[in-house]
Amino acid sequence: MPDGAIAQPPGRGSGRTGRPPLTEERKAEIRLEIARAAVELFVAQGVAATTGEQIGQAVGVSARTVWRYFPSKEMCVSPLFAAGIDAIAAALRAWRPGRPLDEALGRAVTTGERPMARSHLPQVRALLRLTRTEPGLRAVWLQAHDEAEPVFARALADRAGLPAVDLRSEIQAAMLNAALRTAVEHYAWRAPEAAGDAATARDDAGDAATAQAELMATMCSALVVAAEGLA
C-alpha cells in the first residue's frame, strides 16, 4: 500500500452497493401498474388535471420513476394497448394452416403465448372511450397500431414460409390491422355504460368475462367483413 493511503474496509469501494437492479419482469409489472393507475385517474378527472405525481402516488413510486418509464403522462397507458397487440401477433405466429384465423385469435387472447389479461379489458374499454376526446391518448393508440403493422406482416410472411416480408404480407397486415383496430373501437365506443366509465375502469370478474366475449365476437365479425372485401 502506498504511503499515506487509507485502508478501505472490506467490501467498500470494490463494487456496486445498494438495492439490486430490477429484473425485466419486474420492470414490466411496474409499467403495467403505472398504466392502470393512469387510466383510473384519466377517467376520474381527465388527462389535463392528472399529474405525474398523482400517477406515481397511486402506484407508490415517485414522479421521477414515472418519467423514467414514460416520456409523457399520455404514454403511460401504452402497455395496455401493447398487451392486446402482442396477443394478436402471437395468434398470427401460432395460426395453423387450414384453420380459421378467428379460432387462433380466440385461443391467443385467452390461453396463448402472450394472452391478453381478461381483467385489463374493462380498463382498455374505458381508455378507448377517452381517445374520442383526448388527442394525446388518440395519438398513443394510433402509434401502437402503426408499430404493430410490420410485426403482423413479419408473422404473416413467416407463416407463408417467405424469407422476407413482401407486398402481399404487407397488404394483409394492413387490412388485418385496420379491421381489428376498427372492431376494438366499435366495441369500446358503443358498449353500454351502465355503471359509468369510472367503475368500468376497475376490475370486476363478471364484467371482464362479458367484455372478453363481446370483444371476441366483434373482432370475429370484423374479420368476416374484411374477408368479403369490397365486392
Rank of each mutant, 00 (worst) to 15 (best):
19 R>N: 09
169 S>Q: 08
227 A>D: 10
87 A>G: 11
40 E>P: 00
47 V>L: 15
44 A>T: 11
173 A>W: 04
93 R>C: 00
56 G>D: 03
127 L>P: 04
100 P>C: 05
180 L>K: 12
192 P>M: 04
92 L>C: 09
103 E>Y: 13
210 T>D: 12
33 E>S: 14
99 R>A: 08
49 A>G: 01
73 K>Y: 01
89 A>H: 12
72 S>C: 01
221 S>E: 13
56 G>L: 00
123 Q>L: 09
140 V>R: 00
83 A>E: 11
130 L>P: 00
119 S>A: 15
44 A>V: 01
205 A>R: 13
225 V>G: 02
126 A>R: 03
195 A>S: 08
226 A>W: 04
122 P>Y: 05
102 D>M: 14
132 R>K: 05
32 L>M: 08
32 L>K: 07
99 R>K: 10
88 I>Q: 10
123 Q>V: 00
225 V>A: 13
226 A>F: 09
96 R>P: 01
169 S>N: 07
201 A>F: 10
2 P>A: 12
188 A>Q: 02
83 A>P: 01
57 Q>W: 01
40 E>H: 09
64 R>C: 01
216 M>I: 07
66 V>I: 12
58 A>T: 05
216 M>Q: 14
110 T>I: 08
36 R>F: 03
100 P>H: 06
41 L>M: 09
38 A>I: 09
90 A>M: 08
80 L>H: 11
53 E>V: 13
131 T>P: 04
49 A>V: 00
168 R>A: 15
13 G>W: 03
86 D>N: 11
74 E>G: 14
116 M>C: 10
101 L>C: 02
23 T>A: 12
8 Q>H: 13
56 G>Q: 01
134 E>S: 12
103 E>D: 12
215 L>P: 01
48 A>R: 15
132 R>L: 12
23 T>M: 01
226 A>L: 13
187 Y>Q: 07
115 P>V: 13
12 R>Q: 10
175 M>D: 06
211 A>F: 08
10 P>R: 14
78 S>T: 09
80 L>F: 08
191 A>M: 07
78 S>A: 12
94 A>W: 00
84 G>E: 08
37 A>M: 02
19 R>E: 08
11 G>S: 11
216 M>R: 13
155 A>D: 03
206 G>W: 09
9 P>Y: 05
13 G>L: 07
219 M>I: 14
151 V>A: 14
97 P>W: 07
182 T>Q: 11
211 A>L: 02
120 H>M: 07
175 M>G: 13
71 P>L: 07
157 A>T: 06
129 R>N: 13
83 A>G: 05
68 R>E: 03
148 A>M: 06
208 A>S: 13
89 A>K: 07
50 T>V: 04
24 E>Y: 06
200 T>P: 00
98 G>A: 13
18 G>V: 03
230 L>Q: 15
9 P>I: 09
63 A>C: 06
212 Q>N: 00
127 L>T: 02
78 S>R: 07
210 T>S: 07
16 R>I: 08
52 G>V: 00
32 L>S: 07
94 A>Q: 05
127 L>I: 04
